[in-house]
Amino acid sequence: MDTSFRLLPETASTMASQVDGLYFFLNAVAAFFALLIFVLIVYFSLRYRRRDESVRPAPVPTNLKLELLWTIIPFLITMVLFSWSARLFIQMSHSPADAMRINVVGKQWMWKIQHPDGQREINALHVPVGKPIELMMTSQDVIHSFYVPAFRIKQDVLPGSYSRLAFTPTKVGEYHLFCAEFCGDQHSGMIGKVVVMEPAKYDAWLAGTIPDEPPALAGERLFAQYGCMACHGQRGPTMAGLFGRKVELNDGTTVTADEQYLHESIFDPAAKIVRGFTPLMPSFRGQLTEEQVMQLIAYIKSLQYSQSTQEQQ
C-alpha cells in the first residue's frame, strides 16, 4: 500500500476515474463561486468603506433581472450536476451478468469473506484484476459499511437483509478496506485490505497453492487468511512456543502438543479444551485440506523455535 502524502486516493476501479472526473468539475464550480463571492466581498468592503459617518447611501432598488439570473444559472448548473451524478450512480449500481459473486458477512469487528468455490478469508479480499465482481453482503449484528476508497464505492451492510456492491478492479495492488458505519468499540479496527491480483496469480491463490512455497510460509499465510490470529494470543491460547510443550486441559489432564493434537484441535476443537479457555473455536473440517493442515502445523513448529530463543535472551 502506498502510504506517501497525497491529495487524491489511488484510482483502481472502473468507477474511480469517472467519479474523480465529476469531483474535478465540482471543484471547478465551487472554486468559481467561492472566488466570485470572496472577491466581491473584499472589493466592496474596500471600495465602499465608510469614510464619513454621516453618509447615507441611496438605496439600490431590487433588480428582478439580476434575481432571476442568479436563480436560474445556479439551477441549470445543479441540473447538469444531477444528471451527471445520476448517470454514474445508475452505472455503479448495475452489476454485469457475468460478475463473480463473492459473499461478505460483517460482524463486530471483522469482515468474513467466501469465494464462489468455497475459499474463505477474513479482513482481506483477493480479486482478479479486470473481472467484474459483485459482493452479496449481510451483517450478523449491527450495521457496517463496506468501503474501498481506491474504488470510490461504499455500501452499508445490514443485519436481516442482503445488499449488493459491484465493482471492476483495474489495477493490481493492495488497497484499504474500511468499515464506514460506526459499529461499536473496535469500529476503527474493522479494517482490512483488498488485494487485486493478475488472474493467473488469483487462480493459484484460490487453489491454495503458490508454487515452491515452503510449508511454514504457506501455513503463516493460511493462519492469517482464516483469521486465526483474531483469537489466538488473545481470547485463545497463544501458538508461540506451543509445539512439543505439555498442555494442561480443562479436565485436569495434560497432553503433549504434537502433530496429532494440533490436527485434532483444528478439525475437532471441542475435544480437548485448554485450561482457562472457553470452547469458542469453530471446526475447520471440510474447509482445510490435509495438506493445508500440515502447512499450518509447520508454521506452528516454526514459531516454537524462534519464540523460545527470544525468551532465552
Binding site: 467519479v19 469531483y23 465551487a30 450536476l81 444531477f82 454514474l88 450512480f89 464505492i153 461504499k154
Partner: peptide
C-alpha cells in the same frame, strides 16, 4: 453540491 451529487456522495 458534492454530497448532493449521489455518485460522489457514495465515496
Amino acid at each position: 453540491l458534492y454530497v448532493a451529487s449521489i455518485a460522489v456522495d457514495v465515496h
